[in-house]
Amino acid sequence: MIRFTVNAKTRTFSGPPFKRLIDVLREDFGLTGTKEGCSEGECGACSVLIDGKPVNSCLIPVCQINGAKIETVESLGVPEKLHPLQDSFLREGGTQCGICTPGMLMSAVAYLRAGGDASPEAIREQLAGNLCRCTGYQQIVDSVARALGTKPKTGSKAK
């Protein structure tokens, strides 16, 4: 039996040891906020935190997380009470279709906790493992900068 915590709750798993973490989260615990986009660690939609670090949950067999601390997007906020990072994404246009958003948030939240640099270049490097096809990334970068307490300089200029 494998024992670990998911979003601060103790969980056990006694199914196939090579079941992927993403499937365990989605199928066994009903945490469908974590998304699957490519099943080869390229798109980052399945990003979760293991012991505070972003990883691709589609590349992790559950047998490797015994004793680990897992955090998913569900640990941040709820629609009625968003986490400050989620609120920044809402205000700066950081989510469009939303499928990359949970993974993007998990990469960003690890960066926030580590006291990341608010420069666009540094944010872009941190998020390079999360593909987004909707936004062109700028409003995502702005969202993270806002969460870091920097007011983004961009913004639309109607004429």
Partner: peptide
Amino acid sequence: PLAGGTDLMVLWNAGLLNKKTILD
């Protein structure tokens, strides 16, 4: 042998490791 899994798991996801033995 399975270390971080970033290569091996891609094979697993593609169905190429079915019925194999893994040394974690």
